[in-house]
Design a protein around this nucleic acid. Structure first.
Ligand SMILES: [Mn+2]
Ligand SMILES: [Mn+2]
Ligand SMILES: [Zn+2]
Ligand SMILES: [Zn+2]
Lengths: 143, 143
DNA sequence: TCCATTTTTTGGAATGAGTCAAGAATATGG
DNA sequence: CCATATTCTTGACTCATTCCAAAAAATGGA
């Protein structure tokens, strides 16, 4: 398990000031999986009851910009954050309940796909979202 | 070019009632490319000056649900709509100016990618968004 | 063509994720 | 411990989108 000291070191390693909101937010993102801001606020407030929602938004932006957390924004969902960074993995989203699961990337680094015609763009990332139904929501799962 | 009658037939073919807002919105989506709702309202009001924004939202939802238009929601952008449907094509988005261009799908039908591990989901679509910089925003383009 | 029924549109209010801004608090390096 | 820059708090605010109830329009049949 990761300790407060580890999170402080991660922040210093990213040249970010170590503040209690940032430690609490980074810890919350590590404790959760693909959580939205509201859930992160809730968990962060277990450690730091009075932290403002604005401080959480600011922290998440700083952490995401520094690459300590990853922000994903599946269409139709609010922003979500995860601690698994740097492996260019993808996601599968349930059309019914919104559940999100990780899908490993066969390549492991970006961009993992090449566009047939790049329309003059310089492409540095290929983001893949798989859509479907989770086990509970699929016809078979719904016994 | 596509005429009003064609749009009416498209609506009937999709079992949708033919209303002036829907015809105007469908026509506007055909006239534009990856347009957001505001732009569509503007063009629809050239034909139908008093159409409410709510009618446009409702029409877009009905058209998208019927498969007559496609809704794309790149992270960080409002919803956008296009008339090119059914070919499972993808998009490249400029990180700097938000410009969107089409990228043909080599497969042409969904799902065009297979997940290494589907986490128990029944996957029916793989949505790909290529991220990068358009010619104007790329270092080379910015002479 | 007129009616009855159902669906859609209107006009306005509400929602909610996220941002802005000014002053108070805090982290950091010396 | 101080000076300074950064961050946090508080509260207002934005803006895309949705909700709602009453009015209007589309449709299929008489
Ligand atoms: Mn993930
Ligand atoms: Mn397109
Ligand atoms: Zn599900
Ligand atoms: Zn650009």
């Amino acid at each position: 398990m990761t300790t407060t000291l580890d999170f402080e070191q991660m922040l210093r390693g990213a040249a970010l000031r170590v503040t209690r909101p940032r430690v609490a937010v980074l810890s919350a993102v590590h404790a959760l999986s693909h959580a939205d801001t509201e859930a992160i606020i809730g968990v962060a407030r277990q450690d730091l009851p009075k932290v403002s929602h604005q401080a959480v938004y600011d922290s998440l932006n700083a952490l995401a910009a520094a690459g300590l957390v990853r922000r994903i924004q599946p269409p139709g969902s609010v922003a979500r954050y995860e601690a698994r960074v740097g492996d260019n993995h993808h996601h599968v989203v349930c059309r019914s309940c919104g559940r999100i699961a990780d899908v490993d990337c066969a390549v492991g680094h970006a961009p993992c796909l090449t566009a047939s015609d790049d329309a003059g763009f310089t492409i540095d990332e290929a983001e893949v979202i798989y859509w479907g139904y989770c086990f509970d929501c699929s016809p078979e799962g719904k016994t």
